[in-house]
């Protein structure tokens, strides 16, 4: 490993950590100073979580929903249906994820 590689990795690691840490640090400081965020900011932050999950779902699913590859489209839709029913019947996140992945893998394999 060269010094250049190490410095680059260290800077990327430190920067990524600070992106996660500094907003918490600032909020913690504001709380200590008894400064409160505006109602609008609080509502924005409450909406970020569900919106992030929806956005992550869309960007991970969209490449599979290609009408020009009908096999993958059908496998993805059946996999999603499996997630829904297994989650509904068992309430288990791990089971829903693993069984649906097996269904998707099997459908792609036999097609």
């Amino acid at each position: 490993m060269t010094v250049h590689e190490f410095v680059l990795l260290a800077l990327c690691g430190l920067g990524t950590f600070l992106l996660r840490y500094l907003p918490l640090r600032i909020l913690s400081w504001q709380t200590g100073q008894r400064k409160t965020a505006s109602v609008f900011v609080v509502r924005i932050l409450q909406g970020v979580g569900p919106a992030a999950i929806a956005a992550l779902l869309v960007v991970s699913f969209m490449p599979m929903l290609n009408p020009q590859q009908p096999t993958q489209l059908v496998a993805a839709l059946l996999g999603a249906t499996t997630v829904y029913w297994v989650k509904h019947l068992t309430s288990s996140l791990a089971l829903a994820v693993s069984i649906s992945a097996l269904v998707y893998g099997a459908l792609m394999h036999i097609s």
Binding site: A54, L56, A76, A80, V83, V97
Partner: peptide
Amino acid sequence: PALFLALL
């Protein structure tokens, strides 16, 4: 994708 759907 399955994980994000289950979390949703």
